Simulated scan of single mutants.
Amino acid sequence: MKILVLNSGSSSVKYRLFDAGETVAKGLIERIGEPGGDAADHSEALRRVMESVDLSGLGAVGHRVVHGGSVFGSATVVDDDVVEAVEELVPLAPLHNPAALSGIAVARKLLPDVPQVAVFDTAFHQSIPPSGVTYAVDAGLAARWQIRRYGFHGTSHAYVARQTAELLGRPVADTKVITLHLGNGASACAVAGGRSVATSMGMSPQSGLVMGTRSGDVDPTVIFHLHRVAGLPLDEIERSLTRFAGLQGLAGDNDMRTIQRRRDEGDAAATLAFDVYCRRVKEYVGMYLAVLGGADAVTFTAGVGENSPAVRAAALDGLAALGITVDPGRNARGDRVISPDGAPVAVCVVPTDEEAEIARQTEEVSSGQARR
């Protein structure tokens, strides 16, 4: 089956065409609606995509949608009710869901006879039990305003957990894996039997691990203090914690490669940023070992996770008593398995492929619809 995967952002459309699971075309249309941009609007952008690739025999279109709230626990074929439900979730993802809705609307119009499938970043985490998604806040307020842990990077964690099971030569249903998606955005996930049971991101992608420009976990009192004592308006605090925190806030740079170079040169701010980043990862690994009751593997993925031996080594340093060790030579080479032979817990490096996961789920859902 041919599957077209679309990732519609506020000013861009990323696309990838799969045929029988293989990529046959891909591209990016940027600066939509901007002077000198690639397209005037999403409608023009999608038309350009469809003119540039061979869509004959197209079986379905898969759309990445960031937030599915508590409504969507799996990918779903798009109809008017689904569109309405995603629209109602816009307050939870005001920067992302509207862009996805634009892409869906245009694709439905241009390809009216092709099934459209929404694949949600949050859906994989709907299997987390209530104790893992419920915040200890006023229950009435939480229910009224949809306050709970949702989690993100779900397509990446699902893909990487399944690939890790294959790497270990075991059925995914018989594995416990801690997946570490470390990029400019970063999250950890505990996966048991192919199902998410805990994840570090929460109501938004702000919480959990230290990221390129996001703070990760922070005491809520920091916000109150900055507002009441420092006199900063709330929107400025939000901007600071999302755009000028994380590695950027600690060292003035959000690129881990630059942080590591500066650390190697003896830069104190970069060294502290690196140490804070890796310690937070280590804390979550320990937490998720407890949640899972032990693990078969810890797997690194995404830009930093796949490419930084220094981060991988530092994040797992000192965990030998828990069965987790890293072989320096294998780690430096970037082998798929970087733990020593016979280690109780395998340490793996698996490149993520979120578009391939979206295509897989899209084919699964659209094929099921066709069978009905």
Rank of each mutant, 00 (worst) to 15 (best):
L226V: 03
R228N: 07
R228A: 15
V229T: 14
V229W: 07
A230K: 11
G231T: 06
G231A: 09
L232R: 14
L232V: 10
P233R: 04
E236R: 12
E236W: 00
E238W: 00
R239G: 11
S240E: 05
L241S: 10
L241N: 11
L241F: 05
T242V: 03
R243G: 13
R243F: 02
F244A: 09
F244D: 15
F244E: 15
G246Y: 00
Q248H: 13
Q248G: 02
Q248T: 03
G249E: 03
L250H: 12
D253Y: 00
N254Q: 07
M256A: 12
M256R: 13
M256E: 05
M256F: 05
M256V: 14
R257P: 04
T258R: 15
I259F: 04
I259Y: 06
Q260L: 15
Q260D: 10
Q260M: 09
Q260V: 14
Q260N: 03
Q260S: 12
R261H: 13
R262F: 04
R262G: 02
R263Q: 14
E265T: 09
G266F: 02
G266H: 11
A269N: 10
A269M: 05
A270F: 11
A270M: 07
A270S: 15
T271D: 15
T271Y: 05
L272N: 07
L272E: 14
A273D: 09
D275C: 06
V276W: 00
V276R: 09
V276D: 09
Y277L: 13
R279A: 10
R280N: 13
V281P: 06
K282S: 15
E283I: 06
Y284W: 12
V285Y: 05
V285R: 10
G286C: 14
G286F: 01
M287I: 01
M287D: 14
M287P: 00
Y288I: 12
L289N: 14
L289T: 12
L289P: 08
A290H: 06
V291K: 08
G293P: 05
G293Y: 06
G294W: 15
A295M: 11
D296L: 04
A297H: 09
T299H: 13
A302G: 11
G303N: 06
V304A: 01
V304M: 02
E306P: 04
E306T: 03
E306C: 02
N307T: 12
N307W: 00
S308Y: 03
S308W: 00
A310T: 12
R312H: 02
A313N: 04
A314C: 04
A315N: 10
L316M: 08
L316I: 06
L316D: 00
L316Q: 03
L316W: 01
L316A: 07
G318N: 08
G318W: 00
L319G: 11
L319T: 15
A320N: 08
A321T: 05
A321C: 01
L322E: 12
G323R: 10
T325M: 05
D327H: 10
G329S: 05
G329D: 15
R330F: 03
N331F: 00
A332V: 01
R333D: 07
G334C: 04
D335G: 08
D335A: 15
R336N: 02
V337C: 09
V337P: 00
I338T: 09
P340K: 07
D341H: 04
D341G: 03
G342Q: 07
G342E: 07
A343I: 09
A343G: 08
A343S: 15
V345T: 11
V347K: 03
V347E: 02
V347A: 01
V347W: 02
V347S: 05
V349M: 09
T352R: 03
D353S: 10
